[in-house]
Design a protein around this nucleic acid. Sequence first.
DNA 1: CTTCCTGCAAAGGCTTTGCAAAGCT
DNA 2: AGCTTTGCAAAGCCTTTGCAGGAAG
Lengths: 167, 167
Amino acid sequence: MRRLHRAPALDAAAIERAVEHLNQTVREHGLKTSSVRNAVARAALRHQGHFSVDDLVRDVREGGLADAHPATVYRVLPLLVEAGLLQVTLMSARDGARYERAFEREHHDHLICTSCGKVVEFQFEAIELLQLDVAKKFGFHLTSHFHELLGTCKECRSSSGAAAAGR
Amino acid sequence: MRRLHRAPALDAAAIERAVEHLNQTVREHGLKTSSVRNAVARAALRHQGHFSVDDLVRDVREGGLADAHPATVYRVLPLLVEAGLLQVTLMSARDGARYERAFEREHHDHLICTSCGKVVEFQFEAIELLQLDVAKKFGFHLTSHFHELLGTCKECRSSSGAAAAGR
DNA sequence: CTTCCTGCAAAGGCTTTGCAAAGCT
DNA sequence: AGCTTTGCAAAGCCTTTGCAGGAAG
């Protein structure tokens, strides 16, 4: 089992590789490429960590190269996911979808502190294998999974006297 | 690893035990007991399987004993969860919260067919233990988790020629 | 020039909240 | 009585959708 190093930011070349990959998917669908969509993709790929749709809208604007309306971002996101650039994550957040980069990145799951919101990404091959056993036993072909461990981190527990009572 | 038998319906005595437990929690919070809340609790406990807030509102009404406004059900649900009668489930459903009975019921996780919606409940002690290892390694104290495996079931794959193309 | 994409505004669906009336202790 | 709970309606959020103008091929 290991903790994932914070995902390093993609360099410019990798981002362009991802955009090219996206546009290939776009063509395969008989759609047209678009500079706005590519700007959204670049902003999303530049983002480190988890982000909300709003975050992404802001990032695109701050990127300065283009502006994307929220509705457009909502329309573009499913395609970025299908192309493998992003993936939906942090399912337990009940206040809007969260995404994170999936392109050129290892699979991982999350450990979330319900007190301070800290998120630790971990990778545990043994669990992945056992999941396959479960799927096999019940005749399922797995396409994805969500596994989130919720609890309190060491810091929150030690500063608990007052902090824990407050929450 | 084992598949969970469909959760047997709670008998009348168990339901009353649960309601009594709920009211004890209510008193501990310095709140007042209420017949509407108890009616919601009974309807929820009578429900087999997973249900939405709307389902529950309907169940209460069809129970005939009382009527609960949706807003009231939304207000009551967190208390039923805190008292351990229910738990939030099927986090990957992005169209509204789902609940299921937790009172006098074993822990389990879900295998979900993304094609037909079938949900299989399984229990796998080995995975549970490995989760504890993860928590320990990162200094977390786990309070809950959810683990959902998404894929396609055998039936959907075999009737795939046409069906899979449609979805 | 035909088809797709985008921005805008409006609508949708789930959930929360303010308030006055009703319920519990 | 005094505080909680409830119903109702309105508001809040996130997300989706219809439409007209603009971009892409």
